[in-house]
Simulated assay, not measured.
Amino acid sequence: MNFLSIVVFILFSLITYNLLKIFVLSNIKVNAWLILSLGIILCVVSLFLKVPTFVMYIIQWLYFVLILWFVDLFVDNRRKRLRNKNNKVMQNKPKVKPNRIKNKG
């Protein structure tokens, strides 16, 4: 592959990933580690496949999308944990009302 085809592939992958993230991936709730394991399995399996170049581009694109999706999920989970850690839960304590109990005496 020459340099121009690599740049075109990366640009195409990033554009399609961003569109997928906006319309599809943001609505799907899955475990980030499952996505990473699928990406790694796909990468390892693709090493042993003898397929045409076009199919290999599709497999590489899918691997690239899975890895980017994992990074997004991982970073979002980490941000949520840090946000929840920094926000201390304030509990409302009831105010003492002095004249509630009337002394009968």
Rank of each mutant, 00 (worst) to 15 (best):
F12K: 06
N103W: 08
R81L: 08
Y57G: 02
K97M: 11
F48Y: 05
G105S: 14
K29S: 06
Q91H: 11
I35W: 00
L14T: 10
N92T: 13
T16Y: 04
W69R: 08
L38G: 15
L66W: 00
S46R: 02
Q91K: 13
F54Q: 09
Q60C: 14
F23M: 06
L73Y: 02
T16P: 13
V96G: 15
K97F: 10
Q60Y: 06
F23S: 12
R83S: 14
V71I: 09
V65A: 13
M56C: 02
T16W: 05
N27S: 05
S26I: 05
L73N: 07
K93R: 11
N86A: 09
F48I: 09
L68T: 14
F64S: 10
S37A: 12
V51N: 03
L42A: 08
L14A: 13
L36Q: 07
K80W: 00
N77P: 15
I10G: 01
I6E: 07
L66V: 12
T53G: 01
K21G: 08
V89E: 13
W69V: 03
G39C: 02
F9C: 01
V71Y: 06
K50F: 03
I41C: 04
K50E: 02
I41Y: 03
K21L: 13
I10V: 15
Q91D: 10
S37E: 05
L19W: 06
P94S: 06
F64L: 02
I6Y: 05
P94L: 15
Q60G: 14
K95R: 08
L73P: 03
N92Q: 02
L19Q: 09
G39S: 04
Y57N: 03
N27V: 06
N27I: 07
M1G: 14
N103Y: 12
